[in-house]
Amino acid sequence: MTEDQESKCHYIIHSHAVAAAAGNAVPVPGLGIAADMVTMTSMTMSLCAVFGGSLTQEAAKALAIAAIKNTMLKQPIKTLTKELSKLIPGLGQIVAPSISVVMLESAGWVLAKELEQKFSNA
């Protein structure tokens, strides 16, 4: 990954993680996962463009689902804590967005590396 690509990925991943955090601040269990999916789909399409590729929205959604699923499976306690914290007034609006940022950052960088490999071989 070139320095320019890494800089663009950094911006894309961080800005999408912040957007997901905003969606996770709403104290409704389950809504955070929907916010994460929409954000990850958009992030996937943006990251794809960094490496000169293009994906349909459905393909981006499939990659996003796989990335989120892998991240959730690796960090099940964080996922459960994120959703259950929303049941506690006040605490959920702090805990859920924080965990969402960590999970999306992790999934975003994994996805960026996968897309780099996919489109550098193309």
Rank of each mutant, 00 (worst) to 15 (best):
S106C: 04
K82G: 05
V101E: 06
S54T: 12
A67M: 04
V50W: 13
A49F: 00
S54G: 07
T79H: 01
Q57R: 03
S98L: 13
T56D: 11
G53L: 08
W109R: 14
V110C: 13
L84Y: 07
S106E: 14
V95I: 14
Q93F: 14
V102K: 14
A62D: 14
A49P: 00
E116I: 09
A60D: 02
Q75L: 09
G53V: 11
M45Q: 15
L47V: 11
G108L: 06
K118E: 14
L55F: 01
S100I: 01
S85N: 03
F119M: 04
I94P: 01
Q57A: 06
K113V: 14
E83N: 10
E114V: 00
F51D: 05
G90A: 08
P97L: 11
Q75F: 11
T71Q: 15
E58I: 12
E116P: 03
W109N: 10
K74F: 06
M43R: 07
A59W: 01
S100A: 12
T81D: 06
I77G: 04
M72W: 15
G52Y: 00
K74L: 12
K69W: 09
L115A: 08
K82E: 13
T44Y: 04
F51N: 07
W109I: 10
A60H: 06
V95A: 00
I99T: 03
A96R: 10
E105I: 13
P89K: 04
V50F: 12
A49C: 04
Q93P: 05
I65D: 02
E105Q: 13
G52F: 02
C48R: 13
A64L: 03
A66K: 15
I65H: 06
A96V: 11
F51Q: 09
M72Y: 15
V110T: 15
Q117R: 01
A112M: 04
